[in-house]
Each structure stands twice: as C-alpha cells, then as structure tokens.
Amino acid sequence: MMSSLLLISLAILSIAVVGCMYRLLKGPSISDRIAALDMIGVLLLSMIAIICMLLKTYAYFDIILVIGILTFIGTTAFARYIERGVVIESGDDESDR
C-alpha cells in the first residue's frame, strides 16, 4: 500500500520535472531558466528521498545534502553573474562593477 503511494508520488514528481524542463528550454529570459534549474534540483532531492524510503536504506542521505548545497551555490553564482557580470569579485578592480 505504502510503496504504491510512493510510486505514484515518484510519477507525479517526474511530471513536475517535465514541466520545469519546458520552462528551462523555452524561458524568455535567463532568470526563468535559473528558477527552473533551481526547482529541478529541489525536485531531484525529494525524488532521491522517496527512493531511499522505497529501498529502505539510508545510504543516499549524503546525496540529498550534497544536491541541496550544490543547487543553492549554483543559483547564487548564476544570479551574481547576471547582476554584475562576474561571479567572484577581486576587490581591487573598479571596472568590474
């Protein structure tokens, strides 16, 4: 019973990822694509959590943490790149800003 509920949830999440892929490919501005990528990362994280539950193992909890951190860092880097044109500011170069 529970495993069928979990499989239905996995199917629904896959449909959600397909919707995000549509916005990622079509999105008129770069920020649309970044929002879609961020959401794909978060959905991937929850899919891995459900797979952990289906397989009754806690070996993949590290992957949940790593994907969460990488999604946040990626979104931050992209947002800084759009806003300022650089990802890491050197501090002594005024023309970068």
Binding site: L5, S9, A16, G19
Partner: peptide, 18 residues
C-alpha cells in the same frame, strides 16, 4: 505515504505555476 503524496502534489502544482 499520504504525507509524501501531498508533498508531491504541491510540487506538481508549483511546476504548473512555473
């Protein structure tokens, strides 16, 4: 299982909004 299903439905709603 129902809690997980509710979470998946909310995520699908959010993808619909996207």
């Amino acid at each position: 299982g129902l809690v997980v299903l509710i979470g998946a439905l909310i995520s699908a709603l959010s993808a619909f909004g996207l």
